[in-house]
Amino acid sequence: MASLRIATWNINSVRLRLPLLGEVARSLEPDIICLQETKCPDELLPLDGLKALGFPYVAARGMKGYNGVAILSRIPFETRTNDPDWCLKGDCRHLGITLDAPGGPIELHDFYVPAGGDIPDRAANPKFGHKLDFVAEATTWSVARGENRRSVMVGDLNIAPLEQDVWSHKQLLDVVSHTPVEVAALGAWQRAGAWHDAVRHFVPEDQKLYTWWSYRARDWLAADRGRRLDHVWVSPDLAGTLRSHAILKAARGWEKASDHVPVMIELAL
């Protein structure tokens, strides 16, 4: 039986952390790595370095200094060209491809949802409004697409939806990424595509699960005040093919680490 290993990582600058990307490839041995926050215009993407890691197929949508997404693959794919320009901002937060996967094509989407700033109030903080609008547009898009089949969605969605996805549910209820309005919005998006939470498929909802630890913590490991901001969702027809998952927590302790760690799922196709 063939397998497909898909990893996602907010790399926080692909040029700065290209050596760490090699460590991720060696540690997880993924077939595909989806990156967010590449912070690199397409013409400056270190294409040779990425291909040298064993990923001959690369697609990217990047801009100078901010945002940016990229997909690295060991197997062929076609880049989708008709997906929306979210909130008409052209800010490089989504990249979709169609993979030449065992058993038939798989649609793969890589998202980087706006962080939303520090104040959870649309009127006082336009960044928060942008975040809510982005998720609302993605939800409407999902509804319009109809039945969701052979699809995977990954990325830094910048929302920790469950109580055990944060170090303290009570203390983070008014903190951007875990506010009730964001959680409700993400839930609507998930339901619109009938998406299955691939990582919580393996980790029960009553267990703590984090993928991000703030740079502000003096000792991130000792404090362990994390949040699960990075997600993998699969369409209902792929839920039964989920074989395993991995969260590379050790990556948060690497020198010049990203504040996010890689997340991977494996499908048996």
Rank of each mutant, 00 (worst) to 15 (best):
F55C: 02
L221I: 02
E37Q: 10
L88K: 11
V232G: 12
L248D: 12
L88S: 13
P114V: 15
A192E: 00
L173C: 13
L108T: 09
P102T: 02
L108V: 12
D206R: 14
A246F: 04
P204D: 00
A2Q: 10
R93Y: 13
L238C: 03
L44N: 02
T81G: 14
H169Y: 10
M1G: 06
P204G: 07
L45G: 02
D31G: 14
M1P: 04
L172K: 15
S168W: 10
P204H: 12
P126H: 07
W86Y: 13
D48M: 00
W213T: 06
R74D: 06
M1F: 12
D121Y: 05
D156I: 01
A194R: 15
K131A: 09
I32E: 01
Q171I: 11
R218V: 03
P126Y: 08
R150T: 06
I32W: 03
H231E: 11
I119R: 12
R80G: 14
V203R: 13
D100T: 07
V69S: 14
R228P: 03
Q207H: 10
A246Q: 08
F77C: 05
V261D: 12
L47S: 05
R15P: 03
D83R: 15
N148A: 04
N10G: 01
A52R: 05
K249M: 12
R80S: 15
Q36L: 04
I6Q: 09
T140K: 15
T79I: 01
N10C: 03
V166W: 08
A185G: 11
N12F: 13
G253F: 11
K131Y: 02
R61N: 05
D85H: 14
P102M: 02
Y57Q: 00
W233S: 04
Q190D: 04
P19N: 04
A160W: 12
V234M: 03
T241K: 10
D83A: 11
S151W: 07
L20P: 07
P30F: 01
L238S: 00
L4P: 09
C34V: 03
S3T: 15
I11W: 04
V261K: 03
L18V: 14
D219W: 06
G68C: 15
R15Y: 07
I97A: 01
Q190M: 07
K170F: 14
V199G: 13
Q207G: 06
V152L: 09
T211W: 06
I106Q: 02
L132Y: 00
P84T: 03
R200P: 04
G96Y: 11
N148R: 13
D230C: 12
S73I: 07
V24T: 09
V176D: 13
W195P: 11
V24N: 07
V14P: 14
A257Q: 00
Q171L: 13
G22C: 07
R15N: 06
T140F: 07
V135E: 13
E163Y: 10
R5H: 14
